[in-house]
Amino acid sequence: MRYLYAPAFFFGFIGLALYLVGEGVSLIALPALLPLAILLAFLAERLWPYRPGWNESHGDGARDLVHALVNETLNALGIAAVPLVTLWLPHLDLWPTAWPLALQLLVALLIADLGITLVHVASHRSPLLWRLHAVHHSVTRMYGFNGLMKHPLHQMLEALGGTLPLLLLGIPLEVAALLAFAIAIQLLLQHSNVDMRIGALRHLFAWAPLHRLHHLKYGTAGDVNFALFFSVWDRLLGTALHLPDYALAEDDLGIGDRPDYPVGYFDQLAEPFRRADVLHPPAPLPPALQRAGVSVR
């Protein structure tokens, strides 16, 4: 099951969504599938945990639930607004509507993934964007649900980077809804606490064994594996990292020079707009990561 979990979860839920939409089922069925995906993710994390301690609450469970509800509501409103946006936004009518629905979704995934990845990279380079993105990196454990934990403003920036090209091309509403559902499924997999084994699939998909390294708390050591869906973007950007022999410790995650980062939901919303008066030294790079060739600038 450790080898089957990631591909079965990814292709199972996205395949089911494609089937339902293809059969003319209302798009409302897609967000209704998400609680089932979250429930199965929680169950798998308890059956095959990567780090058992990450299954224990760090006082963050209720906060992550609020983040998820707010951000998924914003996603749903964004999808509902697609017909209105297309009325005033110029578009090129280049979308391949005659293609099979699965192929249309693949095109949407590739285009959106590139845009979201570039916004993600910029969020680690720009101090202003980092203040918004730091909310997501403040997590000190990884489990599927906190993949949905983002500052709403940063989520909107990522969504803009990923969907504006698609809107200009004339993406249909049903493909936009499938894309939003696929992103939620991928975030559950990227941040999963399942001890999944993905083997050669790491060359294609940016699932948890790669993305966990992006959340390392040691300075710029985590400036790797930025892609949301496809790891090819990190290879092209020179930011790909794979450490098969390094098992993350339970305290490897977070923001090393901000151990005091707020935990509460509303405090996290306000934190990007506050002045950080207290400076902390960066967390030292563990010897095991040094031996693996990881460096910090």
Rank of each mutant, 00 (worst) to 15 (best):
V70F: 03
N71A: 06
E72N: 05
E72A: 14
A76I: 11
I79Y: 04
I79N: 06
A80S: 05
V85Y: 14
L89E: 08
P90T: 09
L92I: 08
L92H: 10
D93F: 10
L94E: 12
T97I: 11
A98W: 13
W99R: 08
P100A: 13
L101K: 14
L101Q: 09
L103G: 14
Q104I: 13
L105H: 11
L109N: 14
L109W: 10
L110I: 15
L110Y: 08
I116T: 03
I116K: 04
T117D: 02
L118K: 02
V119S: 00
V119W: 00
V119D: 00
V119R: 01
V119K: 00
A122R: 02
S123N: 08
R125C: 04
S126Y: 01
L129T: 08
L129W: 09
L129N: 07
L129V: 06
W130C: 02
W130R: 03
H133C: 03
A134P: 05
A134N: 09
V135G: 11
H137K: 00
H137D: 00
S138Q: 08
T140Y: 02
R141V: 07
G144I: 00
F145P: 00
N146Q: 03
G147F: 05
K150H: 13
H151L: 09
L153W: 14
H154K: 08
M156Y: 07
E158I: 04
E158P: 01
A159W: 11
A159N: 12
A159K: 09
G161A: 10
G161P: 07
G162E: 06
G162R: 05
